[in-house]
Simulated assay, not measured.
Amino acid sequence: MVKKTLAVCMLSVLVFSCKKEASKVSEPRIPNDSIAKTEIKKDLFKPIDTVYSPENSTEDYMKALHYYQSKTEKEISAGSPEQNNKVYEDYVEVRSKYTEGLSRLHTDILDKYVNYYDSGSDSYKFPENIKKLAAQFKKEGLEFREVGEGYTEIWSVPDHYFTLFKNKVTPDYNAYIAQMAIEAKNNYAADAGLIISWEELGERLIFWENFMKKYPASQLLKTVKKDYNNYLHDYLYGMDNTPTYETADGKLYDENRNEYKRIIKKYPNSYTAKRAQEFLNLFDAQLPVDQIREKMNVENDY
């Protein structure tokens, strides 16, 4: 009788264990609700089109900018430097279009922006709506930038692209993006006049000249050549409100003559120094300005 009872108990334990294991296997896995919702939310989010529409709000643009920055960060973390060059080009294009859309959306604010300057305190006094907008822009790496003649634009902050792509692209792109961040810190020109110093402009010319020598096969070469020629044009002739010579008598200003001598002495073997020397020689020969321009053959392409 004891043996029978023991056998029945053992059988019961065995059956209960099997049922318990079966229950474990068939029990469905319950995902973490917050994670699942986040993944679904990300999958469902679609940024607004880059083509401007008055239906888009500031918040739409902020979300789109944030989305593409996050997407770009993921892509460059997994991509090769060569692949990331293309990611950079695409990101600049998309971001530029969204920035243009924001500018069109806030035309009224941009038109009135300079009017908030208070000369008495030498500072701006903005209403709350502009303060709020500026704070939103800052989160996505944007800022208001006065560009002269009463105009204000929306720009990416100077180091936005370099912070994102630093050492993630090929050396030529890395050097290019780094230099663009430096040059974007201050306005180049405004009100038809140069803002940076002649010396700084000369140093920019040397940088881009050396860039072209160092990276002759760079995909950026066409863009860099264009920028270099524009800089050289301004370096030699100046701009409407900051010319390098007196229009009436065709005499070079001492400030510019001294700058050309500086660049020639500091970088005697550079192409920039060679063109500066040619320019000096032509003025010293007292040729008419129109003939000097013809012989120099330096055109801008803005």
Rank of each mutant, 00 (worst) to 15 (best):
R257L: 11
H233W: 07
M212K: 11
Y231K: 03
L201D: 08
Y260F: 12
D284W: 04
E278S: 13
I292N: 03
Q219G: 15
V224W: 00
N258Q: 14
K251Q: 14
S218E: 08
P216L: 06
E200V: 05
A217L: 14
K225L: 14
Y260I: 02
D227P: 01
K214G: 01
Y253Q: 05
N229T: 07
E294M: 13
F211L: 08
Y235P: 00
K225F: 09
Y215G: 05
E246S: 14
P243H: 08
E203Q: 13
F211M: 02
W208S: 00
L287F: 14
T244V: 08
P268D: 03
D254Q: 13
I206G: 08
N229L: 12
D240H: 09
D240L: 13
Y260K: 00
Y215K: 03
M239R: 06
N281P: 11
K225W: 07
V289H: 02
D254K: 13
R204A: 03
W208G: 01
G238Y: 05
Y237A: 02
V289T: 13
A285G: 12
V224I: 14
T242V: 09
A276K: 05
R275K: 15
N210W: 03
G250K: 06
T244Y: 02
P268I: 07
L236R: 01
N230F: 04
D234L: 03
Y228P: 00
R293H: 12
E199S: 10
L236D: 03
K265M: 07
L232E: 01
S270C: 10
L282G: 04
F283K: 02
E199H: 12
Q277H: 09
L252E: 04
Y253H: 10
Y267K: 03
D234H: 11
Y237S: 04
Q286G: 10
I206S: 02
A248H: 10
E259D: 11
